[in-house]
Amino acid sequence: MPTTSLSLTETPLLAGILRRADDALILGHRLSEWCGHAPMLEEDIALANIALDCVGQARSFYAYAAEVAGGGLTEDDFAYRREAGQYRNCLLVEQPNGDFAGTIVRQVLFSAFNDPYYRALTGSRDATLAAIAAKAEKETAYHLRHSGEWLIRLGDGTDESHARARTALDELWPYTGELFEVDAAEAALIEAGTLPDPRSLRAGFDATLDHILSEATLTRPAGGWMQSGGRAGRHSEHLGFILADLQYLQRAHPGATW
């Protein structure tokens, strides 16, 4: 594998695949940072398992991206040889883990979107995307339930856990708007029946959240100003640090295997 960064011509389809792939990889990487540090053994195992699902989903999408891009690229080229500006993940998944409440709130917000998104993607006219989604949607349903139950426990727990969950919700809420954005590239894919329209999932997302939050004695923040840019490669400073960690070995020792 060469050392140089990847030079890509992004067709709408490739961009659409990479957005899903990058969401899964970056969230999986973030969750893996908990390994050995979670508040209890069972949760350490749970977060590592969710991370494993995410990285597995990312591999399926990257393998398809490699097939679409051609030129002998592999899934690893996409993970290890792109600069931060070439990553297409939403800003939510690259946000730091924070405390345990922060990680759980991030997971609930992402899963409440991603679970119905994957379920809708099973109906894609693109057979490969439909197959990846059909494999992944049972996993995301499990992630949503697990993180949802934790948020209820934290919100409806002690004053301390409630306050931390509320703070995390307020801090991460401005990253949810981006999940429902549709640009020209995505609109073409939606029109062609390749990807679902995220805007059609908004009501379900709100209902899922309201159900969890009411049991957690928390309230959904008002709309407000929303962060944006990840889908176009404009990321928060956190992504650079993630990639420095994630890509270090392949950048320093290109093509290394063991």
């Binding site: 494993l52 699902d53 995410c54 597995g56 989903q57 399926s60 990846i132 992944a136 996993e139």
Partner: peptide, 8 residues
């Protein structure tokens, strides 16, 4: 076929 997406 894998049991889970990330089955190692």
């Amino acid at each position: 076929t894998p049991t889970y997406s990330g089955c190692p």
